[in-house]
Simulated assay, not measured.
Amino acid sequence: MDIYLKYLLVGLAIALPVGAITIEMTKQGLKNGFIHGWAVGLGGMTIDGTLILALYFGLASILSLPYVQMPLWIVGAIFLGMLGYDSIKNADQDIALAGEKPTKSFWSTYKNGILVAVSPGNLVFWVSVFGTVLTQSYHTTQSGSFGIAALGILSGIVLHDIGLLSIVATTRKVMSRNMIKWSSIIAGGLLFFFAGYFIYEFINDLIEFI
């Protein structure tokens, strides 16, 4: 139980900083409500769970290689840039105010969550942060500690998502269509910012590699 609580707090702490998933969840939550924001979170957690298994079976050793990481930053930048462009271009589309029926399907926003989370830049993040945390638990003498730690981290992410979307759902009730539109534009700009950060990391890695 101590291991679970420890890694639940770790998962919550890691999920708190604003990232691409948080931005997409907030945008969809404002435009289409709690369920659609939650769909993005579920899409992200689908990838998170898959990556935990992959790290357990040795993926970390491959992704930690510099010549593997460098192209991942670029592909990640492209993924986030595409989402940012779509967010700005369609800022006034698919907006359902509180009490209105959403025009976007649950599975469509779920796929958005997968697209953000499967970004190769996210894979590098998992190796550098989550991989280290989970490896520590894997090497402890207590049987099954890796699985307990992984469950704790995912639980922390769920708590973060529910808390965030509860705030978003409440805020959405007092927002106009134009306010939500501008929120989508700002979200797109932030996604472009993260895409630029990925390119920056690629350049740094390239300089070090050369």
Rank of each mutant, 00 (worst) to 15 (best):
S128T: 12
M25P: 02
Y138R: 05
L30Y: 15
T171A: 11
E208L: 12
D48F: 09
F130Q: 03
Q136K: 11
G84R: 02
V127P: 02
G99A: 08
V116Y: 08
T109Y: 07
S128W: 13
A169T: 04
V68A: 11
S119H: 05
F202Y: 15
W182T: 00
N112V: 08
A195G: 15
S176T: 15
G144A: 08
G43Q: 07
A195S: 15
N112D: 14
G99E: 11
K104F: 04
A39N: 07
S105C: 00
L63N: 04
A13H: 09
T22P: 02
K89I: 01
A96P: 05
Y138E: 13
L51Q: 03
Y138H: 08
A54E: 01
S61Y: 04
G99D: 11
G113M: 05
G188V: 06
S176E: 06
K6E: 14
Y7C: 06
P102V: 01
L59N: 06
S105N: 08
E100C: 07
L30N: 04
Y67E: 12
V129M: 14
A54L: 15
E208D: 11
G58V: 03
E208Y: 04
G113S: 04
S137P: 09
L123Y: 14
L165Q: 02
A187M: 02
F34P: 07
A60N: 13
N32W: 02
L42R: 01
D48I: 00
L53H: 00
W38A: 12
T109R: 00
F130E: 07
S145N: 13
I167Y: 12
S64G: 02
K31T: 09
I21F: 12
S184F: 10
G113Q: 07
I78H: 05
S145Q: 15
Y67W: 09
I167S: 11
L154K: 00
R172N: 12
K31R: 15
V127N: 10
I62V: 15
G113C: 08
D92S: 15
G43W: 13
F209G: 01
P17M: 07
P66E: 10
S108N: 05
S128N: 12
A54N: 09
K181W: 07
R177H: 13
L72H: 03
A39Q: 03
F202M: 10
H160N: 09
L12N: 05
L123Q: 15
I199R: 02
V75R: 02
I199A: 10
S61W: 06
V127R: 07
G43P: 08
H139R: 03
M175F: 14
S155Y: 09
V18N: 03
L115T: 13
I207P: 00
S105K: 09
S105T: 11
G19L: 05
D161V: 05
L164M: 06
Y197I: 04
S145E: 14
K104W: 08
A13L: 12
S176M: 09
R177M: 05
V10S: 06
I52C: 14
V40F: 10
R177V: 03
L154Y: 06
G37I: 06
P120N: 05
I62Y: 15
K111V: 12
L72A: 13
E208V: 04
A54R: 04
Y85P: 01
